[in-house]
Simulated scan of single mutants.
Amino acid sequence: MRLIRGTFPLAVVAVCALLGRSLHLPQLFLPLMPAVAALPAMGRSGGRDVLGAGAAALGGVALLGWGARPVNVVAALAGVLTVTALIRAAARRSRRQESKLARLGRLAQVTQAAVLPRPPESVGGVRLDARYLAATPGATVGGDICGAERTPFGVRLLIGDVSGKGLDVVGTAAETLHIWRELAHHESSLAGIALRMDTAVTRIHHHDGFVTALLINVYDDGRVELLSCGHPPPLLVRGGRASWLAGLDATAPLGLMRMVQDRCPTAVVRPAPDDWLLLCTDGVAECRNGAGEFYPLAERLTAFCGHEPTVVLDALEVDLDRYRDGGSRDDAMMLLIRPPSRQHSS
């Protein structure tokens, strides 16, 4: 659409003038001049473009009007001036609306960041990097949550998925994250956090919803304890290969633990130096393409492992978004954690 800016209206006027004069029928081209003035309406043009197109159209009327019938010239002039005024007013309204939308967009980003903030780059020596792909276009928050807190019991991490779709679950997600933050600093065990969160989620959802969650405790001696509440296990990246972490038995999601009599099994691993852990929600682990095929996360992660972790997440984000294009879309979150080595933590 940049063609309609600058000299394009003037070129149209020149062509009309040349054809009109060469054919000795300039009056037939006079009605085209209001259309030349309306050219900026075809694109996102500013006030100067509108005035420039109007000036070019008036010049065309002057060129073609020489020797034409006065009534045709007057009609063409009136048409150019009317169209220019209308397009100018429309351009001003469009700019005001765009400015208002931009302000609202910035306000929404600040508000969303305050409601569901992303974790910092490092907490207690644990390096973190998060990516979020919203199912709702333009959204930066949804039903997926993650958090990281430095506590008296070590660094505690959470990644979770609140049941429900769209932006309606944002309030529930924010309340769930707030409850976890409080419990992370006061409950000595992951099981204790899970049981108290289960009660809270039941109250928040009014017995008709749940939250899948992965609770993690990174101890100062390098151990990593995990508790899965109906959540996909993490991927362990070791020696350039990614594999799903074995030995982690999942219990029921938060809000449904009464169905398994509050059973909360945990698993403990000791990452080797340079190991990564990739945590993800169902939007990643159960992502399907248009043909219904699952996204091969472990395989793709292994293929990207030759790069820095941040670059790996960037590549995964682009690859996942491309893969799920045409398939069902769900909120998707990835949280990459790099625990400190035991040599460093000692």
Score class of each variant (00 low, 15 high):
A14S: 01
W180V: 14
L19Y: 01
N72T: 10
R223K: 13
S99W: 13
P152H: 11
D331M: 10
T202Q: 15
L177Y: 00
Y132C: 06
G160V: 08
P40D: 01
A75S: 10
A303S: 15
V141S: 10
A191I: 01
S94A: 15
D168Q: 14
A303M: 05
G230F: 02
L236F: 05
P70F: 06
L23M: 13
V36P: 01
G154A: 05
G239M: 09
G46Y: 01
K100S: 15
R131S: 15
H178I: 06
A184N: 12
G239A: 15
A194P: 00
L313V: 11
R300I: 11
E121G: 15
G105Q: 13
V12R: 00
V15H: 08
M257E: 04
A173T: 04
S45C: 15
R88T: 11
P296Y: 03
F210G: 02
A37T: 07
R203C: 12
G147N: 10
P309R: 06
M259E: 11
R263A: 14
D220K: 14
V123K: 05
V201A: 03
G326W: 03
D129A: 15
G52R: 12
R288I: 14
G222R: 04
V12F: 03
V126R: 00
P152R: 10
A75T: 10
V162T: 03
W180E: 06
V123W: 08
T302K: 06
D275K: 11
T136R: 09
R131H: 12
